[in-house]
Write a protein that binds this DNA or RNA. Structure first.
Lengths: 246, 246
DNA sequence: CAGTGGTCTAGACCACCTA
DNA sequence: AGGTGGTCTAGACCACTGC
């Protein structure tokens, strides 16, 4: 492996990727000690501080662990590190091995309710774009989503084809709105007549009801969405961690 | 603020705590630009590299954000950083402002099913302790829990009073089993006759069904639990983060 | 252009572990 | 005692931003 110090890619990053590859490929095995920081720095022809940055990031990412005075070691393959990934329906379904589909039932600019105005931190004259979609997995209806997005963040959104393109893709790529995190509430409910008919289930069938408020990096709210999942077709998975207050 | 370079507490850490205090106290306000790294380094009488470490950690913790070429800024008060805290029912209810209660419907040592044996990674002769409890919030029944715990991890558990003591407290304090993380699946279902009678709701009422597998630090499974929450009385909250596959 | 954060160096001393 | 990671320095050059 050659480090290219003319490359715009930082040296620490090139080294990090090289070490990560050696871990993933099995060249370094779980609980192996990797060479000392000094040796690695010499091997890559860089300073120890730079090498240390590569290793530190791999430690933070869970690939390595350090023991003071002993060395740096390869971690055991870790539990999936995603707590609960913030993904759109398309990505979620694709990952589960289904073919996603969408039918736009409604898309228009509307005046926000007071609740919406407060949740999305809207100014007086701001409107929102309301998008109601029925979503499919392998052509079977699975979920209804009512999404509300401030118009000023994506003025042309109303003309997008959201049956083909993922909403999150459009927000990220066209409007450069990088979604970062979300607060989500979930509860069990039952289908009323309307929901039941749209989803093709019996009235009174169990539904997983979700409210989600999505934020950009700087805690700017960007989307509020209400979701009804068919209880017989959807399981939500999440990893819980012991609370560590930083 | 004085930096003590004789202290065993590293300089970067002392600076980090001082800056954090200035943010929390409001001395630096959200979206304020803090002084440049060079100025701060001079102010604290340290090198820029050391100062940078303090700032980097505050960025990672969500207190600050950097903009290349512009400066370093204070974040808006962040969303609660717990993704989803791993807590028992008692702690959960207390935090929500309810008075928790419990009635043990069943507690005994049983042979594990093949599914349980696999999930809890049990050896041939291991048994499990099965605990069925009805849980109350303000004396109203809210949830039924079936918990399964390997007997060898807590041999005397069967004699504990789990109507008064929190199961997680007993595991952590008496058996020194420090719970670390859990994988949880959630879906919507409806109450059958048995569940409905026990929870005091109508048959066909919505229930939030949860399966949880809890682990110790070293990925040793310690508890499997099935939970049925009343859909009309319980909302699950979780924070989602953009999936960053490292 | 000056000011900012992003990266990098070639050393240094310390604390911890094993022997 | 020798090797390891933990911390720290005093510089340096670069890329991005705003004037």
């Amino acid at each position: 492996m050659r480090i290219n110090d003319q490359s715009p890619v930082p040296i620490y990053f090139q080294i990090k990727e090289d070490l990560k590859q050696k871990i993933i490929s099995g060249h370094y095995k779980p609980n192996d000690r990797i060479p000392s920081e000094e040796d690695l720095a010499e091997h890559y022809g860089t300073s120890r501080m730079t090498l240390r940055r590569s290793v530190t990031e791999l430690v933070e990412d869970g690939y390595l662990y350090r023991v003071h005075g002993k060395g740096t070691f390869v971690s055991k393959p870790r539990i999936e590190r995603s707590y609960a990934p913030l993904t759109g329906f398309m990505q979620d379904m694709t990952k589960r091995g289904f073919i996603p589909g969408a039918k736009v039932l409604e898309i228009k600019e509307v005046q926000p309710s007071p609740k919406l105005r407060s949740l999305l931190e809207l100014e007086k004259n701001n409107t929102v774009i309301k998008i109601v979609r029925l979503r499919y997995a392998n052509e079977e209806p699975i979920v209804i989503q009512n999404a509300f997005i401030p118009t000023f963040l994506c003025p042309e959104l109303i003309h997008e084809n959201l049956e083909v393109n993922s909403l999150y893709d459009v927000l990220e790529n066209k409007y450069k709105l990088e979604l970062f995190c979300a607060k989500q509430k979930m509860e069990a409910t039952v289908a009323n007549k309307n929901l039941a008919e749209t989803l093709g289930v019996k009235k009174g069938s169990p539904l997983l009801y979700v409210e989600r408020l999505t934020f950009l990096k700087n805690n700017i709210p960007v989307e509020y969405v209400e979701i009804w999942y068919r209880g017989d077709r959807y399981v939500f998975e999440v990893n819980l961690f012991k609370h560590w207050d930083k």
